[in-house]
Computed example of a mutant assay.
Amino acid sequence: MRASWYAKNGAARDVLVIGELPTPTPGEGEVRVRLAVSGVNPSDVKSRSARPLGEGVERIVPHSDGAGVIDAVGDGVSPGRIGERVWIWNGQWQRPMGTAAQFIALPQAQAVRLPASTDFDAAACLGIPAMTAFHAIRLLGDIGGRTVLVIGASSAVGHYAAQLAALRGAQVIGTVGSEAKARHALAAGVATTINYKTESVAERVRQLTAGRGVDAIIDMDFSTTVQLLAANGLAPHGTLVCYGSNAYGDIAVPFRPLLWNSLSLRFFLVYELTPPDRRAALDGLSELLAAGRLSHTIGARFALDEMAAAHEAVEAGRLIGNVVVTLG
């Protein structure tokens, strides 16, 4: 099979290789998926750049997200799954073989049935972006009539989070970095945008909430969003749900506002959801997809031979929408 891989960390054009690898055979409890599309996420390019391969690992075929058709099954898997259209989650999590290849073999639970109405490009955006957004919103509970601030509302995760919050009846405020990104966020259900490059997010939040602060924050960068807690950006008894940060060292938190306002901080890693939380996300997303209630944005498509360019596009951060690689 044709695939892309790296054998050492470094810049995309320095370490990514395109070539032939053995086609995998599904083991017990596994399915093999002939992949049509692979999704490229920020975590994928960060791993290629700096995360060690692991002891005894010769190469990494990157990417956790993808979509395609099951073409073979291992022992213990119903042959009826052959021919099933599916999307992949955790393809390359804690294993060297991800979705940047024409085939992948993995536990059958990680290949989720895809409604006929959802194309493979959109399906390759579900594993990390949509599932992260779904779980973040789920952690907030009932948000009908409440105000939710989505940090990075035009980002891959933020775009889904804004849609899901709006579907649950929330008033959504979103931070963006340009007029184009503002239009994208508004189309997803955001009521009001704040340009974090030209406006004070804390001041605008207080203005928009009559000084009270928002009821909840969906956060992609705790290292900067934490400042909102000290600036009364989160209302008393409010919740901040965080799935990432641009700085991963020690981050100071303002204890007094947290205590006196009874604020809650919730953190999670989408790769490590508990089985019940994973099941809830899979079922919830499947229902939304079947009902056609989610919109998907593809920022750019690349061929397998253009893998380095795909990684560079994600690293540049200028595109609106997800980056996908076609594998046909």
Rank of each mutant, 00 (worst) to 15 (best):
R2Y: 08
G10I: 09
A12C: 11
R13W: 09
I18F: 04
I18W: 00
I18L: 13
G19F: 01
G19D: 03
G19I: 05
E28M: 00
E28R: 00
E30V: 05
V31T: 09
R32W: 07
V33W: 05
S38Y: 03
K46D: 09
S47I: 09
S49Q: 15
V57E: 09
R59E: 12
H63W: 01
H63Q: 11
G66Q: 03
V69I: 14
D71Q: 06
G76D: 10
P79W: 03
R81H: 05
I82T: 12
V86Q: 07
V86W: 08
I88F: 08
Q92T: 15
Q92A: 15
M97R: 04
M97H: 10
M97G: 08
G98P: 13
T99A: 09
A100W: 00
Q102L: 01
F103H: 09
I104N: 06
I104A: 11
A105S: 15
L106S: 04
P107T: 08
R113Q: 12
L114T: 13
D121F: 00
D121T: 02
A124G: 09
C125L: 14
G127E: 06
A130R: 01
A130D: 05
M131S: 12
T132C: 07
H135T: 07
R138T: 14
L139R: 03
G141N: 02
I143K: 00
L149S: 09
L149W: 09
A153Y: 07
S154P: 13
V157P: 01
V157I: 13
G158F: 02
A162F: 08
Q163P: 02
L164G: 13
A165S: 13
A165T: 13
V172P: 12
G174H: 05
G174W: 08
T175Q: 07
V176K: 06
E179S: 14
A180G: 15
A182H: 05
A182Q: 13
H184G: 12
H184K: 10
A185N: 09
A187K: 08
A188W: 04
A188L: 11
G189E: 05
T193I: 13
I194V: 11
K197M: 10
T198S: 14
E199S: 12
A202V: 12
R204Q: 15
R204M: 14
Q207S: 15
L208P: 13
R212Y: 04
A216P: 03
I218D: 11
D221T: 07
T225N: 08
T225C: 05
G233A: 06
P236N: 11
C242Y: 01
C242E: 06
G244Q: 05
D250L: 12
I251H: 07
R256S: 12
R256G: 14
P257C: 15
L258F: 12
N261G: 14
S262Q: 13
L263H: 11
L269M: 12
V270H: 04
T274G: 07
P275V: 03
D277P: 00
R278C: 03
A281D: 15
L285E: 06
G292V: 02
R293T: 11
G299L: 03
R301A: 10
F302E: 06
F302G: 05
L304T: 09
E306Y: 00
E306M: 02
E306L: 03
A313C: 03
A316W: 01
R318Q: 15
L319I: 10
G328H: 06
